[in-house]
Design a protein around this nucleic acid. Structure first.
Length: 315
RNA sequence: GCCGCUUUAGCUCAGUUGGUAGAGCAAAGGACUGAAAAUCCUUGUGUCCUCGGUUCAAUUCCGAGAGGCGGCA
């Protein structure tokens, strides 16, 4: 249908496809994006092996039908970060283009898209050891110490980060600890990386519709054996500290058993609630990305039209 | 039928020694510098069940009624 190598702009087609959980990304891939497309997964939980049902990972048959990158590449106790995502995606991109196929970056992790699109800051990568060290200091010197320390070593970051945001305060301290330079000295890219020029498609449904789909999907997960999946992870030694266990569908199991309030229906309700809240957070992040073509997943005509307009520039 | 408790934000409940009220959850919006399905921020007018009484003033006290829960019959 088109010869990618003939690109007149010396850049290749690239598609971003994103949207909140349950909006229908996977189904859409299966209906229009097969044949000469390859997929780069941008979902921070589907990265992990064994987390199949809870992460709503595409099934085996789909994975064999359409080439997927960055799925099942880590064990659930291993760490993975945006940085890994960007590097591996860049490699995947080269590989896919070598095969004369069209790459689609598809998933729900907005943060991954942002850094893939804009490029990573030069700040040092996260280190579990350093983070642990910072944690110990916080334990020892009290809850207020971390933010006070941040104000001392990096006032600009302290001004931007809320004192209660332990996650970011810790990271800022971690950067200073491992590089000797404040986080604010590393600038954040403010424009997209050169040569990417993606067609950005955002999938959107109205809230009621999305919430109903999420509810139905959680019921389906339970029916498909979510509990069995969790049990087999527990047999592998899974704890709530495993990076993969922060995924919705798994974390609820731990929080409910911890408070001795685990029942199947409590689990179901909590997973639904947390998924719906997550969908909302995803949408506010996605909305902040420039140049998104928002479409309803059922509007195939509009999606075809977007693709044709986009490809027209390349042939 | 009698007795006791209860009725306040979408939900669970605080509270006002009488001067018209506030938490958690939910909801809405937002942030996002290598853990991001994470982490965090902002936003609370609601016949304080109804009617009557006392009072300058009642959601708050008194009486009656209605709903709910429990006990005794």
């Amino acid at each position: 249908m088109l010869n990618i190598q003939s690109s007149i702009r010396n850049s290749y087609p690239l598609i971003f496809l994103f949207g909140p959980t349950g909006v229908g990304k996977t189904a859409l891939l299966d209906t229009i994006f097969h044949d000469n497309y390859s997929i780069i997964n941008a979902d921070s939980i589907q990265i992990f092996r064994y987390l199949n049902i809870g992460s709503a990972k595409p099934d085996e048959s789909m994975l064999s039908r359409i080439p997927h990158y960055l799925i099942n590449i880590r064990d659930p106790y291993e760490s993975f970060s945006v940085g890994d995502f960007v590097h591996l995606s860049d490699e995947a991109l080269v590989d896919i283009r070598k095969q004369n196929r069209i790459p689609i970056v598809c998933g729900g992790t907005a943060y991954y898209f942002k850094h893939f699109y804009y490029g990573l800051p030069k700040s040092p990568k996260s280190s579990t050891e350093v983070r642990e060290l910072i944690h110990q200091r916080v334990e020892k010197r009290g809850a207020n110490w971390a933010y006070e320390e941040l104000m001392r070593i990096d006032p600009p970051s302290a001004a931007k980060i809320h004192p209660s945001d332990i996650y970011r305060v810790t990271r800022a301290l971690e950067v200073y600890e491992s590089s000797g330079k404040p986080l604010s000295s590393y600038h954040v890219p403010s424009s997209p990386r050169k040569g990417l020029n993606p067609l950005i498609i955002g999938l959107q449904r109205d809230k009621k519709e999305l919430h109903e789909r999420i509810e139905a999907r959680v019921d389906m997960m339970i029916q498909d054996g979510l509990i069995e999946e969790i049990n087999s992870l527990l047999e592998m030694g899974a704890t709530k500290e495993w990076p993969g266990m922060q995924g919705i569908g798994y974390r609820e199991y731990f929080s409910l058993t911890e408070t001795h309030s685990f029942t199947l229906s409590a689990l179901r309700d909590l997973i639904i609630k947390n998924s719906q809240k997550y969908a909302k957070r995803q949408m506010t992040f996605f909305r902040s990305i420039d140049g998104v073509n928002w479409v309803h997943p059922n509007d195939l005509a509009r999606i075809e039209e977007l693709l044709n307009l986009y490809y027209f520039e390349y042939v």
